[in-house]
Design a protein around this nucleic acid. Structure first.
Length: 827
RNA sequence: GCCCAGGUGGAGAAAUUGGUAACCUCGAAGCACUUAAAAUGCUUUGCCCGCAAGGGCUUGCCGGUUCGAGUCCGGCCCUGGGCACCA
């Protein structure tokens, strides 16, 4: 009798499956339903870690289950291989980013194969492959032609350490999410994607998707739509001449009103002053406003502050009077204008109407500077040192008194519109996507800058614009990309006028690369298109996408945007990339409770674990740990339990060849069949619902049952083992294959087998346990047949000794009966 | 401050979605095998009282609805994550 030795069998079957092309998905020529099971492709950081195992081996269980249930499954894999860490590692180890990345891909591919997952390696994609990024560039040009990619000067987040621009999403607590340096603000000309033009649809289309509610909410909050009105407050003419002494500026450039955005036009009668952001005030100064010294000082001080500093002062607001007034369009009274940095320059119009009675921030400010407070909305909430922000019924608002907030909002906005002083307006927190990176290791932006014609796209026939093989890829301090150093590559003819011109030197944010990779999987070798329509139609949109919650507001939103942008040009015929989405948790360190990472020296090397326990044990362990969408502390003790389980499965099958033991009786056969049948149903349902952990637990129970019979000396027929192995095969594909072929003597792979059938009749034959309660306390349980009538059960229960004892001499008030489950006698 | 997710034995967890709380696994204790250890197998293992039969208590806290609440409702306390002076 041989011993279970995973290291001996796992390599063998991995090779066998690859030779037989078992997991290569056919696009056409079959009548099965196609299913693209997507997992987030990894960044080739060096070594495969436990998080990768968790992210890829568990969904593989689902993929294998789908295959056994008649689906033509594509389970693709690839590498998201551009990005900063390659450059950082390159600088540190004096190796080219390309070599570093390729070395990692080679190593990780090998490690990924050791999982025994059903990856279709024939479809592998890598974002650094020129044949891939050629289409990334092509997509950029399509967006450019549609006005969705544009260049603009914006205040950007600048990381002084990495010397590059960061997207808002890459700034955490005002620090660079990669190196932790404090981020500065710089004004630079950047390439941007107009993601804001899809803001509404990015919110509204979520309702059709099968995604976790939390992910949908995160996106909705991120986009931050708020509906309200823009309102103009005319500036008091009497004071204008004093403030803007040059008559020419006054007449030509001066804005004669201050525009604000509000979600509460119903509180307009309570607007007792205006507050302007320092950014807007500075703009006024540029238009000829001669502000007082105090104002000038305040503005220059505020503008020096970082966002972090401004945020830290939320409790103690500062500000300064502008020295002139505006007119409230409803009350027609003059109200003072103030400048304060609690109003943000980059949101709304950069100015607000302050309603201190109904906004906490305005209240705090009014209190500090002695500004008037006027209550205009009445509701159950009291106004006592805390602004009443709830809606209610209007007071002190002239003809609008008595209206509800909702009604008043409409009427007041309508009134303002007629006077040309206001209109409905939606505001978004979402900003356009700054995709320029002043970095070497990325996709070159395929544009050419001509001094006569301006920016021109590279002709599509000349794609890809290959990344030049630079030796010096250190970023420059002046904000220009290292590509500016590639002399030969840089100089090109303008595609429009033919004169000497220069290539764009910025590269793209890697989120652009990863926002369309799922399409390429359907047709990875296509040289004429990013993917053929015919093939995309077979697989897309992706029915199910597994990944981490950290991509809720970045990758998932960007992919949706790119998909919608391509859809709007009829380049694809679907408008959402991922119909189904499930988030997995992450692996934490059990001692520190933090996310495990190699940099902190806490990581567990999966290669070592595979060598020690085998890939099947690892796979099952990750499935068994708990619900898949939860976070875990890595705890090695239970790995052993899973390995012991597989040892037992192995040993269980060994006596199959011997003839010792006695044949199962009819009753035993029935009992085992009922149990098996229940397991088929339960394990299938669990995998389908991604409850992999309870599926493992059911498998364990089933093996316990088999052992129970074996220990009584019974011989179990092969037909029963076959079912056990099929149920096990998605979880532990190697051991299942070994026992299936080498022990049971089958000729073809177990992974081509069908999922066992459920016999519904047998399910009904199982007896059930009836819980017998008296006054809601369990007094006894009885094993009964399914489907008995209430009267039959009642008779049985009342005859029960323990029940008799409890209800003796008492009056039965109620008899609760739940079919096949429970009775409760209330006395 | 706002929005999510969660809180169940010594640990990971389960609970047919309102019906026996703690399945399965780890750990621990005891026993068997062994010269011994490891491995393996068997037994016990939520807490309290009791020699036992048995009884009582228990799902973060306080209330409520119900014959019956881990599950539903109201209020509160922790933990993790996201957003955050967004008008």
């Amino acid at each position: 009798m041989s011993k279970y030795n995973p290291s001996k069998i796992e390599k063998k079957w991995q090779q066998y499956w690859e030779d037989k092309k078992l997991y290569q998905a056919e696009d056409f020529g079959h009548d099965k339903k196609n299913f693209l099971l997507l997992v987030e492709f990894p960044y080739p950081s060096g070594d495969l870690h436990t998080g990768h195992w968790f992210a890829f081996s568990v969904p593989d269980i689902y993929g294998r289950y789908l295959r056994m249930n008649g689906f033509n499954v594509m389970y693709p894999i690839g590498f998201d291989a551009f990005g900063l860490p390659a450059e950082n590692a390159a600088i540190k180890h004096n190796i080219h980013p390309r070599d570093w990345t390729k070395k990692n891909i080679t190593k990780m591919s090998k490690q990924l194969r050791s999982m025994g997952a059903g990856f279709d390696w024939s479809r592998e994609v890598s974002t650094i492959d020129p044949e891939y990024y050629r289409w990334t560039q092509w997509i950029f040009i399509q967006l450019y032609k549609d006005g969705l990619a544009y260049r603009a000067e914006t205040l950007v987040n600048w990381c002084p350490q990495d010397k590059t621009v960061l997207a808002n999403e890459q700034v955490i607590d005002n620090k660079c999410d990669r190196c932790g340096s404090v981020v500065e603000q710089r004004n630079l000309s950047q390439w941007m994607f107009k993601i804001t033009s899809f803001a509404d649809r990015l919110i509204d289309d979520l309702q059709d998707l099968d995604w976790p509610e939390s992910t949908k909410l995160a996106q909705i909050n991120w986009i931050g739509r708020s509906e309200g009105a823009k309102i103009k407050f005319p500036v008091s003419i009497r004071q204008l001449a004093d403030q803007f002494p040059e008559p020419e500026t006054r007449n030509q450039k001066l804005e004669t009103s201050v525009e604000v955005f509000t979600t509460r036009p119903d509180t307009l009668f309570g607007a007792t002053f205006l507050v302007v952001s320092p950014e807007l005030a500075q703009k006024w100064m540029g238009m000829g406003w001669e502000a007082s010294q105090e104002v000038k000082d305040y503005i220059s001080q505020s503008l020096k502050k970082t966002d972090l500093q401004r945020q830290e002062e939320t409790k103690d607001k500062t500000g300064v009077s502008a020295g002139f007034n505006a007119i409230n369009p409803m009350t027609e009274k003059e109200i003072p204008i103030w400048i304060a940095d609690y109003v943000l320059g980059h949101y709304g119009t950069g100015a607000i109407m302050a309603v201190p009675a109904h906004d906490q921030r305005d209240y705090d400010f009014a209190k500090k500077y002695g500004l008037p407070i006027k209550e205009v909305v009445l509701n159950e909430e009291k106004f006592i040192g805390v602004a009443n922000e709830k809606e209610g019924v209007l007071i002190s608002s002239g003809q609008y008194d008595g209206m509800t907030s909702e009604e008043a909002r409409k009427k007041i906005t309508q009134f303002l519109k007629e006077k040309g002083l206001g209109e409905l307006h939606k505001n978004y927190r979402l900003h356009d996507w700054v995709l320029s990176r002043q970095r070497y290791w990325g996709v070159p932006i395929p544009m050419i800058n001509c001094s006569d014609c301006g920016y021109q796209p590279v002709p599509e026939t000349e794609l890809p614009v290959k990344l030049p093989p630079l030796k010096d890829f250190m970023p420059a301090d002046d904000g220009r990309s290292p590509l500016a150093k590639a002399g030969k590559w840089l100089k090109v003819k303008c595609p429009k006028c033919g004169k000497n011109a220069e290539r764009e030197t910025d590269t793209m944010d890697t989120f652009v690369d990863s926002s369309w990779y799922y399409m390429r999987y359907t047709d990875p070798k296509n040289e004429k298109e990013f993917a053929s329509q015919e093939k995309m139609a077979k697989w897309l949109p992706v029915p199910l996408y597994f990944g981490g919650a950290e991509h809720n507001t970045m990758h998932l939103l960007y992919s949706r945007f790119i998909t919608k942008a391509l859809r709007s040009q009829n380049l694809i015929d679907f408008s959402e990339p991922f119909f189904g989405r499930r988030n997995h948790g992450f692996i934490m360190d059990s001692t520190t409770g933090q996310k495990m990472s190699k940099s902190k020296g806490q990581a567990v090397d999966p290669d070592e674990q595979v060598a020690k326990y085998g890939a099947d044990t690892m796979r099952m362990y990750f499935a068994f740990m708990g619900p898949y969408d939860q976070n875990y502390a890595w705890n090695f003790d239970s790995v052993l339990g899973v390995r012991r389980f597989l040892d037992r499965v192995w040993n269980l099958l060994q006596p199959v060849l011997s003839i010792k033991g006695h044949v199962l009786s009819e009753d035993n056969t029935k009992e085992l069949d009922i149990f098996l049948n229940k397991s088929v149903k339960k394990i299938g349902e669990d995998i389908k619902a991604h409850k992999f952990n309870t599926g493992v637990s059911e498998l364990m129970k089933l093996v316990n049952k088999f052992e129970e019979f074996r220990n009584q000396g019974y011989l179990i027929p092969n037909t029963k083992y076959v079912i056990l192995l099929k149920l096990l095969s998605p979880y532990a594909p190697h051991i299942a294959e070994e026992l299936w072929i080498e022990v049971l003597g089958n000729k073809t792979s177990i992974h081509l087998e069908k999922w066992p059938e459920i016999n519904e009749e047998l399910l009904l034959k199982e007896s059930v346990t009836l819980v017998v309660q008296v006054n809601s306390r369990v007094r006894d349980t009885m094993s009964i047949k399914r489907g008995l009538s209430e009267d039959e059960v009642k008779k049985m229960v009342l005859a029960n000794e323990k029940v008799k004892k409890e209800i003796e001499g008492k009056e039965i008030k109620k008899f609760v009966y739940i079919q096949d489950k429970l009775t409760n006698i209330v006395v």
